[in-house]
Design a protein around this nucleic acid. Sequence first.
DNA 1: GTCTATAAAAGGATAGAC
DNA 2: GTCTATCCTTTTATAGAC
Lengths: 194, 194
Amino acid sequence: MKKDSTQDRIKEVALILFARKGFEGTSLSEIASGVGIKKPSLYAHYKSKEDLFLGVIHKVSVDYNAFFIKTAEELSDRSPEDQLYYLLHKNTGYLRNDELGLIFKRMMLFPPESLRSDIYAMFEKTEDVMRQVIQSILVQMVREEEWEQVFDAYLCLLDGVFEQVFYYSPEEHKKRLENSWSAFIKGVYSREEK
Amino acid sequence: MKKDSTQDRIKEVALILFARKGFEGTSLSEIASGVGIKKPSLYAHYKSKEDLFLGVIHKVSVDYNAFFIKTAEELSDRSPEDQLYYLLHKNTGYLRNDELGLIFKRMMLFPPESLRSDIYAMFEKTEDVMRQVIQSILVQMVREEEWEQVFDAYLCLLDGVFEQVFYYSPEEHKKRLENSWSAFIKGVYSREEK
DNA sequence: GTCTATAAAAGGATAGAC
DNA sequence: GTCTATCCTTTTATAGAC
């Protein structure tokens, strides 16, 4: 059991604040106060606000990649349809949890201008991981000519459902997820029967 | 032809900057400089930064509602399927244009903390408008028991496609839109044939 | 309505004692 | 590693001349 170093505590507090209020909207005073230290003490751990921020985002990115791979492995003995279904569920659940979804989406859509390229570089790996996992499932259930089309539709489903996490209550969101999933899987099967 | 008052010019410049850099990330100096006046002159038109910001968002919200209704009317003589398809296209095109999509999405997902409730109040009407327009199309093409399910799937499609505007190149995005749409409409028809 | 001047506060960052 | 004190810059906002 690794003990919670001050560095880690700073990262935890910073994650929450950055997620809720963004990079520009969060001050070092707030972070320090949340940790229980004074502002200048932060500089013993990070050499600038940007440095701290990138540290936070790096951890978020690495954790998410690991989650996605682990989840896919746990599901690998199910039917392809089940794998896609539970991946949608688990992914949504993970990103809804804590502030992870918030900061993840915020950084994908609205990274701070000056750090855009650093952040996109971190998330490039994420896209690769998702693509590989999803495609390895799709090849088991649709014909080769359909891979790309179904892949795009599934990613759109993932994105749409993810985005709606922020608009709707958990109950409403679950209903919408199920309905959107139903439409998707019906489309896939209708395609097969053609 | 209404002439471009200084107030309007301020709003135009502010829209672009707020969209790109967010509320906290944009300073009044930048806005003033973009307009070609000095910072204190802004206060002759708006009583605070928040006041200016809400003015911008209000216009965005009103314009978008008008666009959505107008587009639906222009499409009303088409088949229901065509209406849904072109609505998806036109909506994506509108929101991709200029900085409108950027600020729209930013405000839906990450409004500045202190203005969250004001902003959500403005966009409430938007949701109503979209719901009514879309449902009036759906009732023409699916059975009553299916309305809700297909509506949810279509909204998820809209959200997913919209979000992807920000990730992909126009060409890549168009391909994904078409593929996601194909899957959606196949699902709808498979349902009908049941 | 626009300007200059200025206030008042908050931001990120550093120096140096402990 | 943490603190106090301080620096420098930038921020929003106001006062008052023109």
